[in-house]
Design a protein around this nucleic acid. Structure first.
Lengths: 232, 232
DNA sequence: AGCCGCAGTGGCAATCTGTGCCATTGAGGC
DNA sequence: GCCTCAATGGCACAGATTGCCACTGCGGCT
């Protein structure tokens, strides 16, 4: 178990586990914290395996819980429902992306900041990250036949958009101190555009057999999409 | 009953009722057809009422069916689930939008075509349309507190995006006969950008008390959003 | 080391959701 | 008026969720 391939595409779900205790400082996660994260990942993996093997419909919640080695009741303490269980695996790189974005040097033009953060968060530094992307690809392909699973994908993206929106709002406040930050509508649009760029890049990539790196990779596609949507 | 306020925002759901029989020709809908449409709308209204009164969680499917005057079993013949029932009311104008878009004069620049169609589909020619928009606003506000309802909104938008995508693809084929149409990625991005423009316009409008027309209206906001996302 | 409070867990019971099956009924064509 | 068929309603059932309660190990205190 453990978080080996814990790469998250858009990372809206990771927060489900330890949102209260240590948001900013990466202080030593207590044993309990780490155990919870491992459990969540374990469940997510079990769900993803079963979903891709049998299809989401034929998979019972109990089967997921059982394969993950937890009680049914515990499953529902981690996830709202069956489909949500794969959320963390579809959130590949999202946390990374937002963190990188929040750390952008003040004064950087927005499109540039977004592009840099996207490039970095969709980069594939190790095999675990690559595996995470490939698993996401499998899920996206399964989603093509399953409305409920597709709904999770939409939700993951939308939550990512919301979070990016707040990151961008803070970023805006930080630079134009006097005026009170950027136009909320612009912030919203930038968040939507960049999230859509990543979403479409991943969807498009999932439809192909392109590698995780190089031309046709998620990072490549995402940057191309971003340029179209935010040419400013 | 009947389709008085049948205006649809993004209109992905309307097809749920009569997708087989009369898709193109608006031939005389048989009595049965009209009855079905009325039933669907009846259920949608019942659901919307209960959702906004009690909240989606506290509303049981049976209560919706009952208020709509149909059997529980029938409810499930019209909608996949509880939340989906309000889909038609959130799809305000979508059908209209796509139809208008499909009918665009060949040669019209894409951004212009999209803007024209959006302006027309979010226009408010009569009180019924206005009522439809206001009801959508109520649902969007309720969605703020309910993840499941929010999920329906995401889904409606996503389905609209998919449909717009195919309309745009055909539009592209129609003009550049020789080459085989526009770059699929571009089509996808244009569909995403225009759908997002409408989505964000409606979300933003729902947060305010602005009127259905004039500055701050859905149409006004949508066009502003579109200009930002598709300045080409 | 021994004790305590608490978070995380598992199990059970109850309610709600979603689907297959079958009989009934009214619409539309002959 | 008779026949065929789509639309409906009721029923039963498997699976999805949730409230409630007791059990157990982690982490802090004495």
């Amino acid at each position: 178990m453990c978080q080996s391939g814990a790469a998250h595409v858009l990372g809206a779900y990771a927060s489900a586990v330890s949102p209260k205790s240590t948001p900013p400082a990466p202080a030593a996660p207590s044993l309990t914290e780490r155990r919870k994260a491992a459990t969540q990942l374990e469940i997510a993996r079990a769900a993803a395996d079963l979903f891709t093997e049998l299809g989401p419909d034929a998979t019972t919640t109990e089967a997921i819980a059982s394969r993950a080695g937890v009680g049914l009741r515990t499953f529902y303490r981690y996830f709202r429902n069956k489909q949500d269980a794969v959320g963390p695996l579809l959130s590949v790189g999202g946390e990374h992306w937002r963190a990188r974005l929040a750390a952008t040097a003040p004064g950087t033009p927005l499109p540039e900041a977004l592009a840099g953060a996207i490039a970095e968060s969709l980069a594939v530094p190790d095999e675990a990250t690559a595996a995470g992307l490939r698993q996401a690809r499998g899920l996206l392909r399964a989603a093509a036949d399953d409305p409920a699973l597709r709904a999770v994908w939409y939700q993951v993206n939308q939550e990512s958009e919301d979070q990016v929106r707040s990151v961008l709002a803070q970023l805006g406040d930080r630079s134009g101190e006097g005026g009170g930050g950027a136009d909320p509508l612009d912030v919203r649009l930038a968040a939507a555009a960049s999230t859509a760029a990543i979403r479409i890049a991943l969807e498009t990539w999932a439809e192909t057999d392109a590698d995780v790196e190089g031309p046709g990779s998620p990072a490549d596609l995402a940057l191309r999409c971003l340029r179209r949507l935010l040419p400013e």
